[in-house]
Computed example of a mutant assay.
Amino acid sequence: MIDLDGVGVDFEGVRALEGIDLRIEDDEFVTVVGPSGCGKTTLLRAIGGLQAPTAGAVRIDGDSPAVAQAGARLGFVFQNHTLLPWKSATENVTFLREMAGEEPRREEAQDLLASVGLEGFEDAKPRELSGGMNQRVAIARAIHLGADVLLMDEPFGELDEITRDELGVEVRDIWRRERKTVVFVTHSVPEAVFLADRCVVMGATGRIERVFEIDLPTSRDEDVFGSRAFQEQVAAVRRTLHESYA
């Protein structure tokens, strides 16, 4: 469980986050959406222990983010895949476990690569893979670490729309299978709604404007995008965003 209690973050007198109260349950998929500069990445960094709050506290199963990070309980996936260019896909997947002092599981890593559509590319270097394929490797790497919590900061931001949709379906399927707690930051309202159990909408003042319970089937594929329920919930999230900036 992730608990944020009155979390605020200031940068040289500028308030990036203010009064953030949020509880994220185990195995929940939560998306955070909002325009540039609203504090959503700062929120993710505070959860992950990469940014210390100037007010309030963050707890992960009762521990500080630093303790959770030291115990390899947090996995990160960024917009830039940060793969090591001289390592193969399999070696990149096992790298974080090795760095954490854990035994790398090559066969498990290759199974993970197959599960994200990369069977046959186990020995490929990042330069031999497309942007979407490299992001699949980065996702497999975070899962292979064995972390309970995955923190994902716009991992599809540089990809084309079709690839984003495909990866969204895959990430949702992986989440259902692995039962991780996921916090996923995005600019895209449709992406936020498609992926989430709950969608957190950030406003211009670094506050949470509203949290939406997403009412869609647990198992989701591309057909969801054309459903009336999906379109209505996307419209509701967009209205909240527009009202917060009016």
Rank of each mutant, 00 (worst) to 15 (best):
G49I: 05
L50E: 12
L50V: 10
A52C: 05
A52M: 09
T54E: 08
A57V: 10
A57G: 12
A57C: 05
V58D: 07
R59S: 13
R59D: 11
D61H: 10
D61L: 04
D63C: 09
S64Q: 08
P65I: 01
A68R: 03
A70W: 07
A70K: 13
A70E: 14
G71A: 12
G71V: 02
R73V: 09
R73Y: 10
G75E: 09
F76W: 08
F78M: 04
F78L: 06
F78W: 11
Q79I: 03
H81Y: 15
L83I: 10
S88N: 09
S88P: 11
V93L: 04
T94S: 12
F95C: 12
L96G: 14
E98F: 08
M99R: 14
M99Y: 09
G101A: 09
E102V: 05
E102Q: 15
E103F: 01
R105Y: 01
R105F: 03
R106F: 04
R106I: 11
E107D: 14
E107Q: 10
E107H: 05
Q110N: 12
L112D: 08
S115Y: 01
V116E: 00
V116D: 00
G117K: 01
L118M: 06
F121Y: 12
E122T: 00
A124H: 14
P126N: 11
R127L: 10
L129E: 09
G131L: 02
G132A: 02
G132Y: 00
N134Y: 02
Q135Y: 06
Q135E: 08
R136D: 00
V137Q: 00
I139D: 12
A140H: 00
R141A: 07
A142R: 08
I143L: 13
I143T: 10
